[in-house]
Nucleic acid binder design. Structure first.
Lengths: 258, 258
DNA sequence: ACAAATCCTTCCATTTCCCGGAAGTCGGGT
DNA sequence: ACCCGACTTCCGGGAAATGGAAGGATTTGT
């Protein structure tokens, strides 16, 4: 048994390391093997193996027939309790469906998390422009209709953080000039809606509006995404704003109801 | 500093204790304070406080303005990666909507987790019977349409476990006799659909059918829930079975596509 | 058919990081 | 002013976590 067991000791908080394993999963990597997870988190195989065992036993992860780890049903159940995720989604869904049926276009619902947009729901007309976002996915705050609304009403600190860093470009029309973006955000605050004209893809245009909670705080945003050239932002904005206000009211109701 | 620090040492795996804090949350308790969480998990305040701090920093939990802990958006994002949760839901949704529009009744989608049903989606006709289940919620395997289907195709071990323990009663028509239930399950396997007639509430009846994966394994179930007396199970069963088979095919397609 | 490579699982001596009682802080109620 | 409950911070001792290595299982290449 020469050299068996050479402990170097813990290198960080245990719970955090366990969570780091969960954090390795994402829309692009929904299933991973032990060694992939160990590589991505930078921890030794045996350590990852033990922690993953605990996560599987609890139900946070599951192993498929090939032995790969996937996100478990238990974690999904927990996620369904998130007020800004499933909770928001359920309250808003009827209104989003109305908006979708009236316009026959893509409808999106999103919230801000840090300096990114997280999409909470997306209902798509089958004939509508294909959208590259997906539920549970993230995107930059600067280019989409929902993103512009959420950024315009974000705390100054967040705005400066975003405006201070390099603005990512997606198309030739993406706004990457900080001052120009600043003026756009001011417009969003004054008008009560945002326009993202071919800033994400050259064939799409989106119009977003803010959703407020019972205290008037902007907590989410709705948007319509249409093919460029099929409809003017100014015909879309009243629809989106009306829908957003209906959802805001529903949220306030729900808050009182418990 | 008399008596400062009397360590008694860890009492269990750290990661598991962190997860125990998450497990304290549920549909009936979506928000809790520090002391409530400590009580429910049986851990000292200071320990709970420290672990909760880690969970909040990572984004698993969030604190609302009153200081209560809630499930965070980050956890919802992770949950959206669960193949048997959001993954299944997204693939099945178009078919469930068709079924809902044709029948104007409640449609439910569920999977089995241990000896319980977990509801993955529920679309309700506004005029349909109110159903007491909710997305992300659990229920006994023995009484609902989806539950009977999932139990009928569960491993023998699970069936014996359920049949061996006392069967919960919800109404006067709930089947609580093990032998009678055994015969019902045999019928479900032969017929290809299940009937739960007023077994959950006296005003509702549900008909369920199995969804199979690409290898023929039963991985989920669909059901229609209607008010008792408005429709016969035998007119509903073809609809549910057709929908279930369409979803099964869609799952197999998706598997090949990746 | 054999070897090499890759992946997964188990083991255990050595520490390191976690535990939790106690004290401090804050806010509301009497 | 005082009490009470809920939350936050502190720190010494000790239990639980760590990770290299060995061995098994599976796949790939020749």
């Amino acid at each position: 048994m020469a050299g068996r067991g050479r402990p170097t000791g813990p290198t960080g908080p245990v719970l955090t390391r366990g969570l780091a394993l969960l954090a390795a999963f994402g829309p692009t990597r929904p299933a991973m093997t032990l060694s992939q997870l160990a590589r991505h988190t930078g921890m030794p195989l045996s350590t990852a193996h033990r922690l993953l065992g605990e996560l599987v036993e609890w139900g946070a992860l599951e192993r498929d027939d090939t032995g790969s780890y996937r996100v478990g049903l238990r974690l999904w159940e927990l996620g369904a309790l998130a007020p800004r995720g499933q909770g928001l989604r359920e309250r808003a869904l009827p209104f989003l469906e109305d908006l979708s049926q009236i316009t026959r276009e893509n409808v999106q619902l999103a919230v801000r998390e840090g300096t990114e947009v997280v999409f909470v729901e997306r209902i798509g007309g089958s004939g509508a422009v294909p959208v590259l976002t997906r539920v549970g996915g993230r995107f930059a705050l600067t280019a989409t209709g929902v993103g512009l609304v959420l950024l315009a009403h974000a705390p100054t600190e967040v705005q400066e953080d975003v405006l201070g860093s390099r603005l990512e470009r997606f198309t030739e029309r993406t706004v990457t000039d900080a001052d120009r973006l600043r003026r756009m955000l001011a417009d969003v605050r004054v008008n009560g809606f945002s326009i993202s004209d071919r800033q994400v893809t050259m064939d799409a245009l989106s119009v977003g509006a803010p959703i407020q909670d019972e205290r008037g705080q902007v907590v989410a945003a709705v948007s319509l995404v249409v093919r460029h050239g099929t409809a003017s932002p100014h015909t879309l904005s009243p629809l989106v704003r009306t829908s957003a206000r209906a959802i805001s009211r529903a949220l306030a109701e729900g808050y009182r109801a418990g």
